[in-house]
Design a protein around this nucleic acid. Structure first.
Lengths: 235, 235
DNA sequence: TGTTCCTTGTGAAACTAATCACAAAAACTT
DNA sequence: AAGTTTTTGTGATTAGTTTCACAAGGAACA
């Protein structure tokens, strides 16, 4: 079954395959059926804003497919992309739980399918089902820890070269072959916003890496040709 | 009643005054009595390690009094102090909930009283009491959001001067008078680790601020003489 | 099939902050 | 009170980045 933007529609959480890992939307069978009825599935085009920094959140979005950029903007307009959420993650949960405004802006990086659950509906569900509260605390922990690791890496790397190397390596996590290929659908500007440097620096560093044959570009795909050398840059 | 290190002992969560705000250890009256029996109160001297990055956590520490530095160390030995926890905060909760190793190191920055709750005891309590699960999810959210704001500010500030200004201003949050005084019991080295620069840079920046009469030192107390000018540095 | 917009590449100048290397000052020890 | 250790202050040098400015390449659109 196909929806708009060529996206495969997932309209049933029970049969969804993303749930296998320890994500938010993976409840015990008893709860899963209930949870399934809470939200509304919908599709967003690329570039849609799910929520904006400072706004009171209307609910949470469970990302079923696609990727979402989570960013903050400083008073002076500098943007920091904290992470790119992948399918299976919940967006906006912490703001809903703590009752505070959204601390991040969520923008779809490509067409996405999401399951939107309204604030009150979710909170009622959590209040009713004790297990679910603990469950969401766990999901929050996992996601925050991952986010922290990323930020930490960024702050601790001494040079921009190190930060960029980290970023690229983080994309290839899991894969192991000699030549690893990652679909890096990010502009230099976006990478700069992920590691907190200027766009020009990213351009220069990347062409450096190409010159030294650590990476290669094949269209929109980045190929890591020399992983050990990249890892050596982390210092 | 006085314990070691001249600390006032708090040995009863029910009568504890820290609970008024929305912290972890502030449960509904019904649960509070139960919660009170879970942990063991104890006192640590300055410089004690409550837990260390990478270790499996044995339990959580509710900080009753004192301050605790939460830091990570990079592979190359650079230290980043992510936050300094204040009384009322839980330490180590996210690692316990997600079942992962501690992502941070917790070191007492001065004599502290803590309420230690063992891993299994806490998890059992949370499983038994649905309300408590949701409650801890909320506490986690609040604390993570605060931590995020801090880190975000640090990464987004373009210059070290801006980062230091932010740090100092964050200490004076809440107070408003013309001259605000903050007990800044941190060494330059520690401040450097909080904002991710070198110790020398902090020394130089601080003496700059003194020269320009934005701040003044009275022993270990820092007096903010010109808050608007400090805020102007954030750019 | 231009036209326009967005992205990438690159040079030069100005600036920031890191690093190394000591000296001075302060805080603890004994 | 003298000695030790930790913290702070400062100069000189150097590496790394930002910023501005502009050109060239690509993609999107009418």
């Amino acid at each position: 079954m196909n929806g708009p933007y060529g996206l495969e529609m997932i309209d049933n959480c029970v049969s969804c395959t993303l749930r296998k890992d320890r994500g938010f939307c993976n409840f015990s069978p008893a709860l899963q059926a209930q949870f399934d009825r809470l939200g509304h599935h919908s599709i967003f085009p690329s570039g849609a804003l799910l929520f904006v920094e400072g706004q009171r959140p209307r609910g949470v979005y469970v990302l079923c497919s696609g990727h979402v950029k989570l960013s903050t903007t400083s008073a002076q307009g500098r943007v920091l992309i904290l992470k790119v959420a992948a399918p299976g993650e919940v967006l906006g949960l912490s703001a809903i739980l703590s009752g505070t405004p959204c601390e991040l802006t969520a923008e779809t990086a490509r067409p996405c399918q999401v399951n939107f659950i309204e604030r009150e509906v979710l909170l009622e569900f959590l209040r009713r089902n004790g297990e679910a509260g603990l469950h969401s605390a766990r999901a929050l922990s996992v996601e925050f820890q991952a986010a922290f690791r990323d930020v930490q890496d960024i702050v601790l790397a001494r040079s921009s070269a190190g930060k960029l190397a980290r970023l690229i390596l983080s994309w290839s996590a899991g894969q192991d072959g000699k030549e690893v290929r990652v679909r890096a659908a990010f502009t230099h500007e976006e990478m700069a916003q992920m590691i907190g440097t200027s766009r020009e620096t990213v351009t220069r560093l990347l062409s450096d890496l190409k010159k030294k044959e650590l990476i290669r570009l094949e269209g929109a795909t980045m190929v890591i040709r020399n992983r050990p050398a990249l890892e050596a840059l982390l210092a």
